[in-house]
Amino acid sequence: MKRIQQPEEGPGVYLTFDDGPDPLYTPKLLDLLNKYQVPCVFFVVGERAQMYPDLIRRMNAEGHALGIHHYQHKSSWFIGPYSLKKQIVTTGNILEEITGLKPVYYRPPWGHFNLFSPAAARNFQVVMWDVIAGDWKVGPREQLLTRLMNKVRDGSIVVLHDCGETLGADSKAPAVMIEALEAFILKLKDSSFQFKRLEDRRK
C-alpha cells in the first residue's frame, strides 16, 4: 500500500474531491473545472456511482482521474477485513464497468484506516492530503477561501467535497465550496501556481 500524502518539492497543486457524485453539485463542479481546464481526482462512493453513472462517464471523458472512496461512506474503524475488502473491490468493479478503466487510487472515508487496510488496499495508491479546509460545513465563501489560501503551497494535495449528504456534512455546503473554488483557482493562476494531474506527480 503506497501512500501519497506529503507535498512534493516542485511546482503543482493537486485538486481532489470526495463523497460524490452528486446530481446537483457535481455537474456544476465539472463545468467549473472545464472552464479553467483544471484536472482533479474524484474519490467516489460506489453506491452513488451506480446511481449516477453518466456523471462518472463525464468525469472520465473530461480527463479527470477516478478513485475509490468505499461503496458506502463508512469509516474503516467500524468494519472488519471482509467488509473492508468488499467496500473497495465492489467500488473498483463499478468504476471499471462504467469507464472500462481500473482505478488505481484509494482514499478511505475521513482518512480512517484499520489493521486490515494495508492488505485490503495493497493494489492501490492511497492518496491523503495536506490541505483540508472544512468545506463540508456551510459558512462564508470568503472564510473558506482564506483557509485554502493560508494552507496551500506548491506540491499540495487539496481535498474538497462535492456532496453534502454524508454524516456530519451540510447538504448545501458544496454550493459554497464551488463559489470559493472558482476564486481559489483564479488566485492561484494569478500567482503562477499550476494545477497538475496526480498521475504526473514525481513521487
Rank of each mutant, 00 (worst) to 15 (best):
N114G: 14
I98Q: 04
V158L: 05
N60K: 15
K28S: 09
M177C: 08
Q72P: 00
Y14P: 11
R202G: 09
E165W: 07
H70C: 13
M149Q: 05
F43P: 00
R141C: 10
M51S: 14
P11R: 12
R141D: 10
D170L: 00
L66F: 14
Y14G: 10
S83E: 13
G12P: 07
E165I: 11
R202L: 13
P39I: 14
K203M: 08
Q6Y: 12
A173S: 15
G12R: 09
T16N: 11
D154H: 11
D190K: 11
Q50W: 02
W136C: 04
A65W: 02
I185F: 06
K203H: 10
L144P: 00
Q72V: 06
M51T: 11
Q143H: 11
W129Q: 07
M128V: 04
R201I: 03
G155I: 02
A175D: 15
Y14K: 08
K137Q: 13
L181H: 02
A121N: 01
K151P: 06
L167G: 00
P81V: 02
E96N: 13
F193M: 06
M149H: 02
K85P: 01
Q72T: 07
M59K: 11
Y52A: 04
D54G: 05
P27Q: 01
T99M: 10
L198K: 04
E165Q: 14
I79K: 03
Y25Q: 07
I88T: 05
Y71N: 04
P21L: 03
S156G: 04
Y106T: 07
E165Y: 05
L145A: 04
D135T: 02
L55A: 09
E96I: 11
R202Q: 10
L32I: 05
L33P: 15
D200L: 12
R153N: 11
I4F: 03
Y82W: 14
K2S: 08
L186T: 10
L167D: 09
G139Q: 15
D19R: 07
Y25C: 04
K85C: 02
K2Y: 02
L167Q: 15
L29D: 09
P7Q: 09
L148H: 07
G100A: 06
R58V: 06
G10E: 12
L198H: 13
K86Y: 04
K85Q: 07
V45M: 00
V89W: 15
P7M: 11
T26S: 06
M51E: 12
V152C: 02
L15A: 02
P53F: 01
L24M: 05
K196L: 13
Y36F: 06
P140N: 05
L115S: 05
K85T: 05
P27R: 01
P103M: 08
A49H: 03
D31F: 06
P108H: 12
L198T: 08
L55H: 05
I132K: 15
P39W: 15
L66Y: 14
E62K: 09
V127N: 03
V176D: 10
I178R: 00
R107M: 06
P140K: 12
D18Y: 04
